[in-house]
């Protein structure tokens, strides 16, 4: 069992702060995530055709691309929800190709999936209470969360599905913070939300990143995320076509998204 051995070998998982000896041993900052020739697909349809990627620890790493490029699949593969069909995923120095999603989550990886990252039929309070595998008492978690997201405290008895889209995403963010992740994956936070709300949410994300969490954010709508990202890649049709600093990436985006008219 790869998964269980992984869990025992690394109780602290991908928490960068938990392994001081590593930073001392190497010259540059070791990447928290390294993908080589990663492939995955649905049945006979290959969606990711060999992704090579290196994500440095700390900061916000933006993954951009038009719809259908394979961004969401990439995140699902990273979180262990979707099988790898080729290549390797190395997370904080360990290969995690076949790790189970719950084990990954317990070792510090958190994915906020596309569209709905909350349990819609549970109340805000119950959504937060589900996170007890860290040993913290529910009351403690709630207290910390409400201190940080006061808006949620007002809604604690409300069923999550009846809140607005922005509040749901805020709850999803709050819950992920409560799991104390080392690596946070966010899939299309902006989906179906008004631009103003998206900006507010990304401010929260930037705040989370400042506490030392590495964030990988998948976005189709590039501008807001590029404003806070420390580096970015563009994926189209399952391949990385561009990588660099946010400014460089932004200048070339329009052509990549809308294609090139022959002559």
């Amino acid at each position: 069992m790869t998964s269980s051995s992984m869990a025992t070998a690394s109780p602290n998982g991908v928490h960068p702060t938990a392994e001081p000896e590593r930073a001392a041993g190497t010259a540059g900052p070791e990447p928290i995530l390294q993908l080589s020739d990663l492939r995955a697909g649905y049945g006979a349809i290959e969606v990711l055709h060999g992704i090579d990627l290196m994500v440095p620890a700390g900061g916000i790493f933006a993954v951009l691309g038009p719809n259908g490029a394979g961004k969401s699949t990439l995140l699902k593969v990273l979180a262990g929800l979707h099988p790898v069909s080729g290549g390797t995923i190395v997370m904080a120095g360990r290969e995690v190709n076949r790790a189970r999603p719950d084990d990954l989550a317990r070792s510090g990886l958190c994915l906020i999936p596309e569209g709905r990252g909350v349990f819609a039929n549970l109340t805000v309070e119950e959504n937060l209470r589900l996170i007890t595998h860290l040993g913290a008492r529910p009351a403690e978690i709630e207290e910390r969360t409400y201190a940080r997201f006061p808006q949620l405290a007002v809604r604690r008895k409300q069923v999550a599905g009846t809140m607005s889209g922005g509040e749901q995403q805020m709850l999803a963010l709050a819950r992920s913070v409560a799991t104390d992740p080392g690596l946070l994956l966010i899939d299309e936070l902006s989906m179906g939300l008004a631009p103003r709300i998206v900006e507010m949410l990304y401010e929260l994300v930037a705040e989370i990143a400042r506490t030392g969490v590495t964030v990988i954010a998948v976005e189709q709508f590039a501008r807001t995320i590029l404003g806070i990202a420390s580096s970015a890649v563009v994926i189209t049709t399952g391949r990385v076509v561009l990588a660099g600093l946010p400014d460089e990436v932004e200048s070339k985006l329009s052509g990549l998204y809308l294609g090139n008219v022959a002559d």
Partner: peptide, 17 residues
């Protein structure tokens, strides 16, 4: 050609406010 140069279209794809 028209679609590609249209500002509204580019904005919609890139998420400009």
């Amino acid at each position: 050609g028209e679609v590609r140069k249209d500002h509204a279209v580019i904005g919609a794809y890139l998420g400009s406010a």
